[in-house]
Computed example of a mutant assay.
Amino acid sequence: MPLSSTTLKLEDELKARVKKLADVRDRTPHYLMVAAITEYVAREEQRESFKQEALDSWREFQETGLHLTGDEVNDWLQSWGSEAEQGSPLCHK
Rank of each mutant, 00 (worst) to 15 (best):
S5Q: 11
T7K: 09
T7W: 02
L8V: 01
K9I: 07
D12C: 03
E13Q: 09
E13C: 05
K15G: 03
K15Q: 11
A16I: 05
A16W: 02
R17Q: 14
V18S: 01
V18G: 01
V18H: 00
K19L: 15
K19V: 07
L21C: 10
L21I: 01
L21M: 08
D23T: 03
D23F: 13
R25D: 05
D26C: 06
P29G: 07
H30E: 15
Y31V: 10
Y31T: 11
M33Y: 03
V34N: 00
A36V: 08
I37D: 01
I37W: 03
T38A: 07
E39F: 02
E39C: 05
Y40K: 08
Y40W: 13
Y40N: 15
V41N: 00
A42W: 02
A42S: 10
R43L: 06
E45M: 11
Q46N: 15
F50I: 15
Q52V: 11
Q52R: 14
L55P: 10
S57V: 11
W58P: 00
E63R: 13
T64Q: 08
G65L: 03
L66Y: 05
L66C: 00
H67R: 14
H67E: 07
T69I: 15
G70H: 04
G70E: 04
D71N: 11
V73A: 14
D75V: 11
Q78S: 06
Q78M: 14
S79Y: 09
G81V: 02
S82F: 04
E83A: 11
Q86F: 09
Q86V: 09
Q86M: 08
S88T: 01
P89L: 03
L90P: 08
K93M: 04
